[in-house]
């Protein structure tokens, strides 16, 4: 598994795709951060993270589209499947490699907060306020980052699964983007519906609604479990795709 993880990680950066993804992610993150905070004279990062989540819907498929589709097209999957590695190990290696690249870019994008903190520090000057706070709330930032990481992991698992279904990278990317759009759209439609029970059901399955608690800086175990189980389900399904092909 570790060999596949290493190989995937390296192949992100010997092909242009890794650079395209990181460049787009960091550029977009900086731009959105700039517009939602500094240019709107606000320390509130909620809208930054919300928009980033939607941007991930387009960026993450770039990472996952080639994971299996390319192997299938070049017939290199035969090497992996006849090597002494379990199918679960192979899928996990690829999943974790994509997650590492995503997590890394998310971590690097945290430099966007430096100007916000310095601005806040300048505004506070030497004074200390007892009843209100100037600057971003660090707990909220961390909650948002953890939430984004979890949602990213869920998207990556989904993209991995879709990539295993096709040998066309473009098809894999387009289908993944559509499915993610549907999942996120559910959360938006939710707010337009008046019927209580439909809203309850929709918010229960919606990826977006679980993000709310993280945005408020709450560490929501139910949500963590929710995202982890999405990852598990799609990784499991990917393994089944390969098992099934063997047994057919």
């Amino acid at each position: 598994m570790f060999a596949i993880y290493k190989k995937e990680l390296r192949s992100f950066f010997i092909t242009p795709i890794g650079y395209v993804y990181t460049g787009a992610f960091l550029g977009l993150a900086a731009l959105i951060c700039c517009y939602t905070t500094i240019l709107s004279s606000s320390y509130d990062t909620t809208s930054y993270f919300t928009i980033m989540m939607f941007a991930m819907g387009i960026l993450i498929p770039l990472l996952t589209m080639r994971l299996f589709a390319e192997e299938k097209k070049l017939r290199t999957e035969q090497l992996l499947l006849t090597a002494p590695v379990t199918i679960t190990g192979m899928v996990m290696g690829k999943f974790l490699a994509a997650l590492t690249v995503f997590g890394g870019s998310l971590l690097v994008s945290c430099i966007n907060f430096i100007p916000i903190y310095t601005t806040a520090a300048a505004e506070r000057g030497n004074q200390t306020y007892e009843f209100y706070h100037i600057g971003p709330v660090t707990g909220q930032l961390i909650g948002n980052l953890v939430g984004l990481l979890l949602i990213g992991a869920a998207f990556i698992a989904l993209g991995t699964f879709i990539s295993a279904l096709t040998e066309n990278q473009l098809a894999a990317a387009v289908i993944t983007i559509s499915v993610i759009a549907l999942m996120l759209g559910l959360g938006l439609v939710n707010s337009l519906i008046d019927v209580y029970w439909i809203r309850a059901v929709l918010s229960w399955i919606s990826i977006y609604s679980r993000f709310g608690n993280f945005q408020n800086g709450l560490f929501d175990f139910a949500a963590i479990l929710y995202y982890a189980s999405i990852c598990f389900v799609f990784v499991f399904l990917t393994v089944r795709v390969y098992e099934k092909r063997r047994w057919n």
Binding site: I4, S11, T15, L74, T76, Q78, P84
Partner: peptide, 20 residues
């Protein structure tokens, strides 16, 4: 089953690791 973007050395190293 060749990874066309790798060098021969990289490919053989990968095989080496893959096979433990």
């Amino acid at each position: 089953p060749l990874y066309l973007d790798m060098t021969v050395d990289e490919y053989l190293s990968f095989n080496y690791e893959l096979k433990g």
